[in-house]
Design a protein around this nucleic acid. Structure first.
Length: 467
RNA sequence: GGCGGCAUAGCCAAGUGGUAAGGCACGGGUCUGCAAAACCCUUAUCCCCCGGUUCGAAUCCGGGUGCCGCCUCCA
């Protein structure tokens, strides 16, 4: 049995066969860091974090890259409005992104490249496209000549002529064709800029992902992911840029997660109905948010509401309670029963079913239903007068194993909190050893915000809560 | 106009040819000093509607209705 992935390019589930046996190269489009992320941004973060965890669980060596767009029009606008500058705004919201996604159980990528740190590669990429005749310079801008790339529209399954009717030229643009898109934008007066062969300016939106994927993962990658709205035009343009230059398929599998609606309406600034993760996690257990997202298949839309979130919490608590029941029994009873083949089989079957469901295009909704079934099995077992510590331990281990694949922790909240603190302290210790004192201080400040005081003593670090 | 998605019990949600998972809520029962937790039973003769293919369809095909997304920055 192998993993199957729904590929947007072919519109069907395909067996997953990586380019290089045992290895997976994954690139997921990250946020433009001009504000705190909303729950719509959180979905791809959680979905693709789960994909990554599952691929690793299945034995793949996964290289996971996710970018930050830290310079673009929205950032420039935000900086002006806040009376700040682009690097300051970007830095602030990159830190906030890490904080918010960490709360949601999202692991850091192997690298989080930023546009501003990839400038030489981006410029070289554009330069080579110009040299190959796929792009042209026009008064300080550089545009990609869309019609020069055969196969444009293959991801979104649109013919280039159908697209043309929807395309438009903004006033003042110097495109030769409405479908052409910007690779490089000349800087206006007072705007942040970088030097380039075409003068002072900054990259267009799409080029960064092409340049970063190439820099970190090579000309062809296994999985490219993002929200479904990125399929067109963003990913279509990435394909055009990358394949025109590299002459190799950019990605083998294209994955797109569905939208989140608020009370059945699309989240948007104009409707004022967007929910920031930063605000939500103050009143809602982040694990519940993650559970809520994974309870629906990643390609389907999710409707978000406070009521549904509360139902999700009740549901998750059923699993958590079963887990706690097991832990509690372990501490209060003796080892009174023999090991049993019957329960060993339940455990093996549960793992097998979980894998079957996840293999099928990461069907986390089904995988979670397996956890419910397993919770019931655990409770049934605990009804027996005499139980075996080994069996109970096996139950607990499997809970940890499977919930871990989904990025969920079943520990009680207080315990979880302590564990997180310990983990952060450990990370800080390492940072101090590495003489990365800025990161060490960052962690100390982070904990201080949570009223956790760290004290470095000769015997090591101790911490206490500042009441 | 082009491309695409969705419609399954009161609610949420899997299931893409073999006879309706799971969760929440509701009702009945068991256990229990109380409470909690838990267990058992019950809850869709049927999957938007109409045709068709098939031994057999929620699942495939045709038509219809309703809702939604992309085609412009967007997760």
């Amino acid at each position: 049995m192998s993993i199957k992935i729904f590929n947007t390019m072919t519109r069907q589930k395909e067996p997953f066969v990586p380019l290089e046996e045992g290895k997976v190269k994954m690139y997921v489009c990250g946020p433009t860091v001009y504000n705190y992320i909303h729950i719509g941004n959180a979905r791809p973060a959680i979905v693709f974090d789960t994909v990554r965890r599952y691929l690793e669980y299945r034995g793949y060596d996964v290289q996971f890259i996710s970018n930050f767009t830290d310079v673009d029009d929205k950032l420039i606008k935000a900086a002006n409005e806040m009376g700040s500058d682009v690097p300051t705004i970007a830095e602030k919201f990159i830190n906030a992104y890490h904080e918010d996604t960490c709360a949601l159980g999202v692991q850091k990528a192997d690298a989080h490249p930023r546009v501003t740190e990839t400038m030489p590669e981006i410029i070289e990429f554009i330069d080579n496209l110009v040299k190959k005749g796929f792009a042209y310079e026009a008064a300080g801008d550089v545009y990609f000549k869309t019609r020069s790339f055969e196969g444009y529209g293959k991801l979104s399954h649109q013919s280039i002529d159908d697209l043309k009717s929807g395309a438009r030229i903004e006033v003042g643009e110097k495109k030769e064709d409405p479908l052409d898109f910007a690779l490089w934008k000349a800087a206006k007066e007072g705007e942040i800029y970088w030097e380039s062969p075409w003068g002072k300016g900054r990259p267009g939106w799409h080029i960064e992902c092409s340049a970063m994927a190439k820099k970190y993962l090579g000309d062809s990658i296994d999985i490219h992911g993002g929200g479904q709205d990125l399929a067109f035009p963003h990913h279509e343009n990435e394909i055009a840029q990358s394949e025109a230059l590299n002459e190799a398929p950019m990605a083998k599998y294209w994955m797109h997660n569905g939208y989140i609606n608020i009370d059945n309406e699309k989240m948007s600034k104009s409707l004022g109905n967007f929910v920031l993760v930063h605000d939500l996690v103050r009143e809602q257990d982040p694990q519940v948010i993650r559970f809520f997202m994974l309870a629906v298949h990643y390609r389907n839309p999710i409707n978000f509401s406070q009521e549904l979130l509360e139902v999700a919490e009740t549901s998750l608590n059923r699993i958590r309670t079963a887990y706690e029941n097991l832990k509690h029994r372990l501490t209060v009873t003796a080892d009174l029963a023999e090991d049993s083949d019957k329960w060993a089989k339940v455990i093996d079957d549960t793992r097998a079913k979980f894998i079957t469901d996840m293999d099928d295009d990461f069907n986390t909704a089904n995988a979670i239903s397996i956890l419910f079934d397993f919770s019931k099995e655990a409770n049934v077992y605990l009804q027996e007068r005499n139980t075996s510590k080994a069996v109970i331990t096996d139950f607990i281990h499997l809970f940890d194993e499977l919930a871990g694949v989904l990025g969920l922790t079943l520990q009680k909240e207080e315990e979880l909190l302590d564990e997180q603190i310990e983990a952060l302290i450990e990370e800080r210790n390492q940072a101090r050893k590495d003489k990365n004192f800025s990161r060490a201080d960052e962690i100390r400040d982070l904990l201080k915000e949570q009223n956790i005081i760290l004290e470095d003593t000769a015997q090591g670090v101790r911490w206490k809560r500042d009441k």
